[in-house]
Simulated scan of single mutants.
Amino acid sequence: MVWAVLAGLALMLTGWVARRPRRVVRSLVYLAVRLVYRLRLRGLDHIPAHGAALVVCNHVSFMDALVIGGASRRPLRFLMDKPIYDSPWLNWLFRLVGAIPVESERHDPGNVRRALHEVSRALRDGEVVMLFPEGRLTPDGEIHAFRRGLELILARDPVPVIPTGLSGLWGSWTSHANGPALSGRPRRFRARVALYFGERLPPGQATRALLERRVRELKAEADCWAEPVVEEALERP
């Protein structure tokens, strides 16, 4: 009798996961992020409950998308490097959550155009898309100039934009703080990480310069709470 009940529950759970895969993955990611970091969130209500929107954030580490995507109350589509997307171990997960791979024109002519087309289609379907306008991980912990692709997306699809500041992940093994990301080993556990979503900018008012300034301001505010990185401490065993 007990085994029959357990089997029934397992079938129900499997069916629920199959119907809502992104929601389940997001919940699991959020739980994992909460276990690994002491996460402070602010401004989650700035992400609209319905309709298309763009979330733009500074890019600190390879964990950024997981932290932001897990924290969001809505599923986020996000752009990511194609070599990482094609990872044989993780491609199934990236496909499940709807990641959009992008490769440089030098390696794959036309790929950027196709990626931007997929972003446009997602926005027109009423989804939320997240991107890192710097186009790469920060090499020094600072925010670098936003690239032109952001303007191309907004010119094609003027949607509300949520500037976002992330702090606390610089110095982790998934950042470039101590050499190439992922080349070392984890040195911190339960670090303080702050993720601040700013007020939505209406369609047509979000310029590249304005968004870069707002993200810088939000990161500076997040820095006040997030754990400072002390190089000497990082070298301790």
Rank of each mutant, 00 (worst) to 15 (best):
L137W: 02
G70W: 01
H117V: 04
E199K: 13
N91L: 09
H144R: 06
L93W: 12
L35E: 01
T174E: 14
L44C: 07
S120W: 00
S104M: 09
A122Y: 01
E151G: 14
A71L: 05
L6N: 07
R19D: 08
L166T: 11
P160R: 06
P83T: 07
T14I: 10
C57P: 08
A145I: 08
R26G: 13
A10I: 02
P163I: 04
R213K: 14
V159K: 00
R73E: 13
R121I: 08
V119I: 04
A220M: 05
I47V: 15
A18Y: 02
N58C: 07
P109G: 11
P163S: 07
D125H: 05
W170P: 12
S72P: 04
S167T: 09
V55A: 12
R200F: 00
C224H: 13
E134Y: 01
S104D: 10
P203D: 11
L39N: 02
A206T: 03
V102Q: 02
A233G: 08
R23P: 00
A181F: 07
G43I: 06
S104A: 14
G141H: 04
L41W: 01
I84S: 12
L210P: 08
L211T: 07
E235Y: 14
L54T: 02
L9Y: 08
H46F: 04
M1T: 12
A7R: 12
V17H: 11
I100E: 09
R156G: 04
R38V: 03
R208G: 10
G184F: 06
V17D: 13
S175T: 04
L195A: 10
C57I: 06
P160W: 01
S87Q: 15
V24A: 14
N111F: 00
L39M: 06
H176R: 15
P160H: 03
L234K: 03
W89A: 15
G15V: 07
H117P: 00
R147K: 15
T138Q: 09
A191G: 06
I68K: 04
V229H: 07
S72G: 04
H176K: 15
D125E: 14
K82S: 15
L13N: 09
P202Y: 11
V29L: 11
R20N: 11
D125C: 08
I100Y: 01
I162T: 07
